[in-house]
Design a protein around this nucleic acid. Structure first.
Length: 154
DNA sequence: GCCAACGTTGGC
DNA sequence: GCCAACGTTGGC
């Protein structure tokens, strides 16, 4: 099993929004970055654990935990929808360009971890999240980093 | 709202 | 294949 961090702007889609979805599960649509796509398509497995990160929040923070709920990645339907902001006219159903996974709510931290605290923790200095210029919306997390993050919620 | 850091596009 | 121009992310 692997660990991940996935970013979302809470004004757009928060961990509470995920919880409120049917079966607390939703498609992680709208990813339009190849590195992030590749991780979803090639590496994510059902049951993988996810840190749900709220970007563009005040302050930005790790909000809770979700899990990967689809067996594997599948084509993101929004790329075929001309009305969607995520529409991609270069993508075809035969050769879809963008993939997504289903994500299921697991828990919301009683004490969310602000980005400042992640930065201040020397054990987390190698996390992609705190590295300069790291904008990827999906990032791998090591098991040590995972354990350390969870320890900070106590 | 600013802007640094990246990613993507497209002319050549 | 280079790279300038442009677009996006996301903290501050």
């Amino acid at each position: 099993m692997q660990y991940w961090l996935m970013k979302s702007e809470p004004d757009c889609f928060s961990i509470d929004d995920l919880k409120a979805c049917p079966n607390s599960t939703d498609m992680w649509d709208g990813v339009r970055n190849y590195q992030a796509r590749n991780m979803m398509r090639d590496e994510m497995k059902k049951g993988d654990q996810v840190l749900f990160y709220h970007s563009n929040a005040k302050p930005p923070h790790i909000a809770g935990i979700a899990t990967i709920a689809s067996k594997q990645a599948y084509p993101d339907p929004t790329q075929f929808d001309p009305k969607s902001q995520y529409f991609d006219d270069k993508s075809t159903k035969d050769r879809p360009r963008w993939f997504l996974v289903d994500v299921k709510y697991k828990k919301k931290f009683k004490n969310p971890i602000p980005l400042d605290q992640v930065k201040a923790n020397p054990k987390l200095k190698n996390m992609k999240l705190v590295q300069k210029g790291s904008r990827l919306s999906i990032q791998p997390v090591t098991s040590k980093e995972w354990d350390e993050v969870l320890a900070m919620t106590n």
